[in-house]
Amino acid sequence: MKFAQILYDKAHWIFEADEKPEFAPNIILVDITHKPTVKEGWNYNSETGEFTAPNIPEPIPVEPQPTLEEMQAQTLVNTEYLIARSGLGL
């Protein structure tokens, strides 16, 4: 038999045993023998007894940081630009 320990409405721990173990009364175990797709972290609805996969949002893309060489090149361009403006009296 296959069981899922439910903690905070999620399948916290999935394990196999010959029979349902006797744990403390506050530990909730659900028989998932006939639900082979259930995985740890899935949501559990205690009213319906159904498991659903968690909705994990896509990560927010992070723009890559400029390299040291790119920052130095940009500083050089900015410096040359300021010198040129100064030479023109702007």
Rank of each mutant, 00 (worst) to 15 (best):
M1C: 12
M1K: 12
K2T: 12
F3Q: 12
F3G: 08
F3V: 15
A4F: 09
Q5H: 07
Q5N: 08
Q5V: 06
I6D: 04
L7Q: 06
L7P: 01
L7K: 00
Y8A: 09
Y8T: 00
D9R: 05
D9I: 01
D9F: 03
D9L: 08
D9T: 04
K10R: 04
K10F: 01
K10V: 00
K10E: 01
A11M: 00
H12V: 00
I14N: 01
F15D: 01
E16R: 02
A17L: 14
D18L: 06
D18I: 03
E19F: 05
E19R: 04
K20E: 02
K20M: 06
P21W: 01
P21L: 01
P21Q: 00
A24R: 02
P25Q: 09
P25L: 03
N26H: 10
N26I: 02
N26M: 04
I27Q: 07
I28H: 10
I28F: 05
I28S: 11
L29S: 13
V30P: 01
V30K: 11
D31E: 05
I32V: 09
I32Y: 08
H34A: 14
H34F: 12
H34D: 12
K35N: 13
K35R: 14
K35I: 14
K35E: 10
P36D: 11
T37A: 15
T37M: 15
T37W: 11
V38W: 04
V38T: 02
K39T: 10
G41E: 10
G41Q: 08
Y44G: 06
Y44V: 05
N45G: 03
S46R: 04
S46L: 13
E47A: 11
E47Q: 14
E47V: 09
T48W: 04
E50L: 06
F51Q: 03
T52F: 09
T52S: 07
P54Q: 09
P54M: 01
P54S: 06
I56K: 10
I56P: 05
I56A: 11
P57E: 13
E58C: 07
E58L: 06
P59Y: 09
P59C: 02
I60P: 13
I60R: 15
P61C: 05
E63P: 13
P64D: 12
P64W: 06
Q65I: 15
P66R: 03
T67Y: 05
E69Q: 10
M71P: 00
M71I: 15
M71S: 07
A73D: 13
Q74K: 11
Q74F: 01
Q74C: 04
Q74A: 04
T75W: 13
L76W: 05
L76D: 07
V77W: 08
V77A: 07
N78K: 14
N78V: 11
T79I: 14
T79K: 14
E80Y: 14
L82E: 13
I83S: 06
G87F: 09
G87A: 07
L88Q: 03
L88P: 01
G89W: 01
L90H: 02
L90F: 02
